[in-house]
């Protein structure tokens, strides 16, 4: 249906469009599947697919480093952690917790309002300005968007930006980078402490009990 619609103007359908439709529709579908699935393990699975499709979109937008980072950190790291958590806590009564009807109504309301706000904004921002002076910009944009997605090397410039070396289209980010490094370290220690504190207490109580008796 979609390709048929575009068939009238054949030159505009290219590899980028096809791939975008593929990844974009996948990302949307699987995010909705996360919402409407009741089983928490399946939710995790759909989330994996949604995030992987998003990383495909990042690649299409020319952000290859971010796309790969998404795969490594998000899909490979965070989600493995999440699936781990799901498996640790997934016992029959908790695998599918039903949502009350009232919650659905409130959520649908919130979601609907958000969507009503966000989609028109997307149209306003994304479409080229209607001024006559911008026609040149429009054609330029069309020309660029209808070429094959090019892989512009971004990794080097991003790395330099993170080291605080400003480039022509990036500012220096040394301080945020350091803050985030420290933050990660703190989180690592904190998470390890949180996850094992309980067990320690139990062991101590047991040993006290056995000493007392």
């Amino acid at each position: 249906m979609r390709t048929g619609n575009g068939g009238r103007r054949m030159g505009e359908i290219n590899g980028h469009t096809v791939l975008f439709l593929f990844f974009g529709i996948l990302a949307c579908l699987f995010s909705l599947a996360v919402v409407f699935s009741a089983n928490v393990v399946r939710m995790a699975f759909y989330l994996i697919l949604a995030l992987a499709a998003t990383s495909g979109l990042h690649f299409l937008a020319g952000a290859d480093f971010v796309g790969t980072m998404q795969l490594v950190l998000y899909v490979g790291g965070t989600l493995v952690l999440l699936v781990f958590g799901v498996m640790l806590t997934a016992q029959n009564p908790f695998i599918s917790l039903r949502t009350a009807g009232g919650d659905w109504i409130v959520a649908a309301l919130v979601g609907g309002i958000l969507l009503v706000i966000l989609v028109p904004v997307a149209f306003q921002i994304g479409l080229p300005p209607q001024d006559a002076g911008d026609i040149e910009g429009l054609t330029q944009r069309e020309a660029v968007a209808s070429s094959e997605p090019v892989s512009v090397p971004t990794a080097t410039r991003i790395g330099l930006g993170l080291l605080g070396v400003p480039g022509d289209d990036v500012s220096g980010y040394l301080l945020p980078f350091e803050i985030i490094s420290i933050h990660l370290l703190v989180v690592l220690v904190g998470a390890a402490y949180l996850a094992r504190a309980k067990r320690k207490v139990v062991v101590r109580q047991e040993s006290q009990n056995s000493a007392g008796s």
């Binding site: 290859d64 480093f65 790969t68 980072m69 795969l71 490594v72 899909v75 490979g76 892989s151 512009v152 090397p153 971004t154 990794a155």
Partner: peptide, 9 residues
């Protein structure tokens, strides 16, 4: 451009 990273990911 980030092939190594991609393969491992």
């Amino acid at each position: 451009n980030v092939a190594v990273f991609f393969v491992v990911a």
